[in-house]
Design a protein around this nucleic acid. Structure first.
Lengths: 183, 183
DNA sequence: CTCGCTGATGGCAGCGACTGACGTGATCCG
DNA sequence: CGGATCACGTCAGTCGCTGCCATCAGCGAG
């Protein structure tokens, strides 16, 4: 992150990173498949957390509720690191190649969560959809959490996002003069 | 596509592609920013179609309905090319690098549609969400359309997908032994 | 202790994606 | 005809990334 801030992502060579970390370029590529991957070290942890959360949910719950609970359970992973997360996100959003990778990680997350739901016995279709909606909710909530001047919790934004999505998909409200929901 | 089928994506060099097309490698890179990009030539057209469809929608409609109409309007672009689309999709799904690019294109599409909705006067939040949900619906519908043994139309799958997403987000239905509503 | 195995690392050479600088021919236009 | 523009080719170079081999530390067996 230091190097990327100084020279930008493109301006930083893998040799630079390796040197700063006290490694060889060759060794760097043994740990990270990719130059970009170094920015997504935490993605694996997030996935494990979500999958674990899904597996631990009570039997009778509807898939979407299971996913929501798992989402909320990831909150501690971020809550203390808002500033770091903002810097990282800003970097990613500026570089299309990084944004691509980010999208890929989220897709992988959705896939893993879907699988976890299926393992609990939820029907295949509902699992996939609930997982995908969950990730959409997370993405949206995360963005808002990063930029919330009121610094409300990630959990707050997760719940609000779910309500917002539900309202949108229901349709009906054309041009809400008085915005329903978030205010 | 011929080359990719013969030698795989990784096994095909840009020089190969350029030669087959009667060009130089250098010239290839003037047309395509990327080796991958050559597979996403149509994405721009899809985006234009969607944005145009959104702009042309009646004033009073709710954002999600506008998006749905625009989605359905893209159907002719694909309906005749199912087999080609399948081959392309199969190629993409096998290569993570290509999947990444695909996700990126879809995200760009969502962003463009969101913008188009805002230009019509829909509130910012609702625009973004409706666009994102629209793309989710499209993704899902497209997959199912590709693999539908009954070969139902893309429009059919678009409508079905919207219903499915709405049902999921509404929650409640736990383990639907008897699927509620549509089957 | 020494042998041999393994696992982590460095060194090196090489491929292929991608870029910048420059030259050239065709086309258009006053 | 002269000059500008444009599309393309050529060349050289950087960098991401990989395969192959050498080195070295740890470690158990004898």
């Amino acid at each position: 992150m230091e190097l990327f801030r100084e020279r930008g992502f493109d301006g930083t060579t893998v040799a630079d990173i390796a040197e700063r970390a006290g490694l060889t370029e060759r060794t760097f590529f043994r740990y990270f498949t990719d130059k970009r991957e170094v920015l997504f070290w935490g993605a694996h942890q997030l996935e494990e957390l979500m999958v674990g959360g899904v597996a631990a949910a009570p039997d009778a719950a509807a898939p979407i509720e299971v996913v929501m609970a798992a989402l909320e359970a990831t909150s501690p992973m971020f809550e203390e690191r808002r500033e770091f997360a903002r810097a990282r996100q800003a970097l990613i959003m500026v570089h299309p190649e990084l944004k691509e990778r980010e999208l890929n990680k989220l897709a992988a997350l959705a896939s893993a969560v879907g699988e976890a739901l299926r393992k609990r016995g939820s029907p295949a279709t509902a699992s996939t959809l609930a997982a995908e909606m969950g990730v959409s909710i997370f993405k949206m909530a995360f963005e808002r959490w990063l930029e919330d001047p009121k610094k409300r919790s990630l959990v707050h934004h997760i719940r609000a996002s779910r309500r917002a999505l539900r309202a949108i998909l229901a349709g009906g409200a054309a041009h809400p003069k008085r915005a329903p929901g978030h205010g």
